[in-house]
């Protein structure tokens, strides 16, 4: 269960060097345009001609394709099948399977939804592959995000694998005491409390100690804090961000206007 917790791959590329906020705006631009631009093939074109080349530029194409085949395509494919077969729209039946039928309209609709979801998840994946979470957080904190938010996100990413390991230990321990986690429904439902209880109580007891520890380090102090790492923000970054914001507005207004 020791899964890789952050997708981040340390490489040196143009995309890696971009300011984290620029990449975040880029993700929202992808989502905004994919969902609002009034051209049928827009999502697919974004994916084929922008997202995939960007993955190559960022030198993370191998990892990107790995994530895509493992996570994105199965989800999108399942969604496509469900939509195509189950949406009760359209007359012209193309394909039939027992009582389920795929019409031209439902296929077209399924394709739109699946392509949008692919673009949305791919854009986030690209951001996560090229940006270290703490870099993103320290940049956002410098721009005025309260430090507490950064603390919550970074420390969750640290606590999560520890707690997953603890959960595995508890499951193994309770099984060795004879707890039934595999047989009938009632037995499995009954084993929720013996598994969840120790995990939750064990973690909640730490809270007070942690609170005292970070309080001793000036967590709630109102004084301006300095950062150990400076995240560069260039003129190019600012220009890219403005262009992207204009693109989003353009796409939304085209959608409303047409």
């Amino acid at each position: 269960m020791h899964e890789r917790l952050s997708f981040y791959i340390k490489r040196d590329s143009v995309i890696h060097r971009l300011n984290p906020l620029t990449k975040l705006v880029l993700v929202f631009a992808f989502i905004g345009v994919a969902f609002t631009f009034p051209w049928y093939w827009m999502s697919l074109s974004l994916f084929l001609f922008v997202l995939i080349p960007l993955a190559f530029v960022a030198k993370v194409s191998r990892e990107y394709f790995f994530t895509a085949t493992r996570l994105i395509l199965p989800a999108a494919g399942f969604l496509f099948l469900m939509q195509a077969l189950f949406q009760p729209i359209g007359e012209e039946i193309i394909f039939q399977f027992y009582f389920l039928d795929a019409t031209r309209e439902s296929l077209a609709f399924a394709f739109t939804i699946a392509a949008r979801i692919i673009v949305m998840i791919s854009a986030f994946t690209l951001l996560l592959l090229t940006t270290h979470p703490s870099e993103l957080m320290s940049d956002l904190t410098r721009r005025g995000l309260p430090g507490q938010f950064a603390y919550v996100i970074i420390s969750t990413l640290q606590i999560l694998p520890q707690m997953q390991a603890k959960a595995q230990t508890i499951i193994a321990a309770q099984r060795s005491r004879g707890l039934d986690t595999e047989s009938t429904f009632l037995k499995r439902a009954g084993s929720v409390l013996p598994l969840v209880g120790p995990l939750v109580f064990g973690s909640l007891v730490e809270v007070e100690e942690r609170a005292i520890a970070i309080e001793a380090r000036g967590f709630t102090s109102k004084k301006e804090k300095t950062s150990l790492h400076e995240v560069p923000d260039t003129v190019t970054d600012k220009t890219i961000r403005w262009v992207l914001i204009i693109l989003i507005i353009l796409s939304i207004s085209l959608n409303l206007w047409l």
Partner: peptide, 15 residues
């Protein structure tokens, strides 16, 4: 929100 809230939130998310 007090300090204990901020410490509890990450643990709650992990839970």
């Amino acid at each position: 929100f007090n300090t204990q809230t901020w410490v509890l939130i990450p643990i709650a998310i992990a839970i």
